[in-house]
Computed example of a mutant assay.
Amino acid sequence: MTEDPTQKHPRPEFPGQDQQHPGWTGPMDPPPDHGETSYEGTGILRDRKAVVTGGDSGIGRAVALAYAREGADVLFTHLPEEEKDARETAALVEEAGRTAIAVPCDIREEEQCRRLVERAVAEFGRIDILVNNAAYQMSQPDGIQAISTEQFDRVVRTNLYGMFWLSKMSLPHMPSGGCIINSTSVQAYKPSPHLLDYAMTKGAIVTFTQGLAQMTIGDGIRVNAVAPGPVWTPLIPATMPDTTEFGKQAPIGRPAQPAEMAPAYVFLASPQASYITAEILNATGGTPLP
Rank of each mutant, 00 (worst) to 15 (best):
167 S>E: 14
196 L>E: 12
99 T>N: 12
224 N>M: 03
222 R>A: 06
31 P>N: 11
112 Q>Y: 03
104 P>L: 14
52 V>R: 10
89 T>Y: 10
219 D>A: 14
120 A>T: 03
30 P>A: 08
61 R>P: 00
287 T>Y: 13
46 R>P: 01
201 T>H: 05
181 I>F: 02
287 T>V: 15
76 F>Y: 02
23 G>R: 11
243 T>M: 07
61 R>I: 00
145 Q>H: 12
261 M>F: 01
208 F>M: 13
249 Q>C: 05
260 E>K: 11
114 R>F: 03
262 A>M: 03
256 A>K: 10
50 A>S: 13
258 P>K: 13
210 Q>E: 15
27 P>E: 09
180 I>S: 03
132 N>K: 02
168 K>P: 05
71 G>C: 07
253 G>F: 06
142 D>N: 13
96 A>W: 02
284 T>G: 07
223 V>T: 10
250 A>V: 01
36 E>T: 11
149 T>G: 14
239 T>H: 09
5 P>V: 08
232 W>I: 00
100 A>W: 05
246 F>K: 09
9 H>D: 11
206 V>Q: 08
195 L>P: 00
280 I>C: 08
259 A>E: 12
74 V>F: 12
237 P>D: 04
22 P>C: 09
290 P>S: 12
146 A>M: 06
149 T>N: 15
3 E>D: 11
100 A>Q: 01
118 E>A: 15
222 R>W: 07
27 P>N: 04
257 Q>Y: 00
244 T>R: 15
138 M>T: 04
53 T>K: 07
99 T>I: 07
74 V>Y: 07
82 E>V: 02
8 K>F: 04
165 W>E: 12
256 A>V: 00
253 G>M: 05
184 T>A: 13
216 T>D: 06
